[in-house]
Nucleic acid binder design. Structure first.
Lengths: 186, 186
DNA sequence: CAACGTACCGGAGACCCCTCCGCTTAGCAA
DNA sequence: TTGCTAAGCGGAGGGGTCTCCGGTACGTTG
């Protein structure tokens, strides 16, 4: 989670970047699905400008939620200081699931991220956070050892495929998390 | 897995349908990503005609693999006659994973199917097949009881997100399947 | 303060998805 | 055979994504 990639130096460029982010926060934050062309129009910039600043839709959304994601990643070690590894793991999963359900759009993005196609500026910290939890669990014998964090992240990505609008979405997420955790236990 | 939905009655309609499927089998079957407009053009029909016959891209692909999918679904009860439930479950998972890795495009489709948005003509049999396996496992005590087949299908859908081109794709699929099965055990 | 190089702008354009609706024609009925 | 009619055709059109490159203006340098 390094600073924003290749911050523009010129003033107008920075202004544009901010305007785009402001508009995106409103539209993407609420609807979840808004055309990039519409965002560019509302922000008063050309479509080309938007794409230069944020090469993909994911890049834009990730930038919106940069801080939140950072927070989630930091929670992994924090939870480990408060709970036993197994509990910490489960709590962290819950928090991730809960967050993904709130902020529409993040789901799609993390989904994309787990595909590996994304710049791993976001992928790697995610894998790292999981790795920390898995290591702790392996150390105290509650989890299998030798687990691959990427495998687990992939399993987690299923959460984003639960339609939050449908009834019982939350329960389903909880059930699946329980299954995943059971599979990881030693 | 009922007969094709709403078979057209007129001859020209049927001809068009077949020509579309023939072209699709070649293009989608090999590349996996081909524009529907290109398929329509190659098949010598208007884009509107293609969309009338196959309302979505998934509908088209699913039609291509109808028989294969049917075969997979039938394998579930068949495996149960040859193996203990737990083994049958694992074997069936393997077959599904293996098949999905071969036929490019199926992945996307089942992925979409698991979203529920799809006509459940395909979704339901899938859930049913899993249900049969889960029931057998619950009956002999090797699996948890009360498992929701839809949950399991959702977990399985993660398989389609493993890039088959990347190294170690097969191993990763196997690892994840093992984790899933472990999570289902009693 | 002028002038210049380049970082950045912005929209036209290529391509795609999907819908809608006026036109065509297959197949039936007289 | 000759209508007739609705099932079916097909492409124009609206909206979207993403690229590319001629033009603009920022900030620096003399």
């Amino acid at each position: 989670m390094t600073p924003p990639p290749a911050k523009p130096t010129r003033r107008d460029a920075l202004d544009n970047r901010e305007r785009i982010l402001t508009v995106a926060r409103q539209t993407l934050g609420t609807s979840g699905s808004a055309s990039l062309s519409a965002i560019a129009r509302q922000a008063g910039v050309g479509i080309g400008t938007l794409y230069r600043h944020f090469p993909t839709r994911e890049a834009l959304v990730l930038e919106l939620y940069r801080h939140d994601i950072q927070y989630l990643m930091d929670r992994a070690p924090a939870l480990l200081t408060e709970h036993e590894p197994l509990v910490a793991l489960r709590r962290w999963f819950d928090e991730v699931a809960h967050y993904g359900r709130l902020k529409f759009g993040v789901s799609e993005v993390i989904h994309a991220a787990t595909n590996g196609g994304l710049d791993d500026e976001y992928y790697e910290p995610f894998v790292h956070a999981i790795g920390v939890l898995l290591d702790a669990g392996a150390a105290d014998g509650s989890l299998k050892s030798g687990l691959d964090p990427e495998d687990v992240l992939l399993q987690l990505s299923v959460l984003w495929r639960i339609d939050p609008a449908r009834d019982g979405a939350e329960e389903r997420a909880a059930r699946i998390l329980a299954l995943i955790v059971d599979g990881l236990k030693a």
